[in-house]
Computed example of a mutant assay.
Amino acid sequence: MSELPLIAVTDSATCPRPLAEQIERLAKLTKLRPQAVILRAKSLDKAAYRTLALQAQQSCEAAGIPLILHSDWQLASELGIKKLHLPLALLRQLPTCERAHFTWLSTSVHSVEEAIEAQALGATVLIAGHIYTTQCKAGLAPRGLGFLQAVCSAVSLLVYAIGGIGFDAAQHAELQANGARGACVMSAYMRL
Rank of each mutant, 00 (worst) to 15 (best):
S2P: 11
L4V: 07
L4T: 15
I7W: 00
I7C: 01
A8H: 01
S12V: 08
P16C: 13
P16Q: 05
P16E: 15
R17G: 06
P18I: 09
P18K: 13
L19V: 08
A20I: 11
I23T: 05
L26M: 11
L26F: 01
A27K: 10
K28H: 15
L29T: 15
T30H: 06
Q35F: 07
A36K: 02
I38M: 06
I38R: 00
I38W: 00
L39P: 00
R40C: 03
A41V: 06
K42W: 05
S43W: 07
S43Y: 11
S43Q: 10
L44K: 07
D45E: 15
A47C: 11
A48K: 07
A48C: 14
Y49S: 02
L52Y: 03
C60S: 06
C60I: 02
C60A: 13
E61R: 15
G64F: 01
I65P: 01
P66S: 12
I68S: 04
I68Q: 03
L69Y: 01
H70A: 08
D72W: 00
Q74E: 08
A76L: 05
S77L: 10
S77T: 15
L86M: 06
P87D: 02
L91K: 07
R92P: 11
P95W: 07
P95Q: 05
P95I: 03
E98Y: 08
H101K: 13
F102K: 04
F102Y: 14
T103A: 13
T107Y: 08
T107S: 14
S108D: 05
S108M: 08
S108K: 04
S111N: 09
V112M: 03
E117H: 09
A118K: 01
Q119D: 10
Q119M: 12
A120K: 08
A120D: 09
L121S: 06
T124L: 02
T124W: 00
L126E: 00
I127Y: 00
A128V: 02
G129S: 15
H130Q: 05
H130Y: 10
Y132W: 13
Y132K: 13
Y132G: 05
Y132S: 05
T133V: 06
T133D: 05
A141M: 13
P142D: 14
R143C: 03
G144S: 11
L145C: 07
G146T: 11
F147N: 01
F147T: 08
L148Y: 03
L148C: 08
L148E: 01
L148R: 04
L148Q: 02
A150P: 02
C152K: 07
A154C: 12
A154V: 11
A154N: 11
V155Y: 02
S156T: 11
S156V: 15
S156Y: 13
L157H: 12
I162D: 01
G163V: 14
G163Y: 10
G163N: 09
G163S: 07
F167C: 10
A169V: 09
H172G: 12
H172K: 13
H172Q: 13
H172L: 12
Q176C: 06
Q176K: 11
G179E: 04
G182M: 09
A183K: 09
C184Q: 09
C184I: 01
M186P: 03
Y189C: 06
R191V: 10
L192S: 06
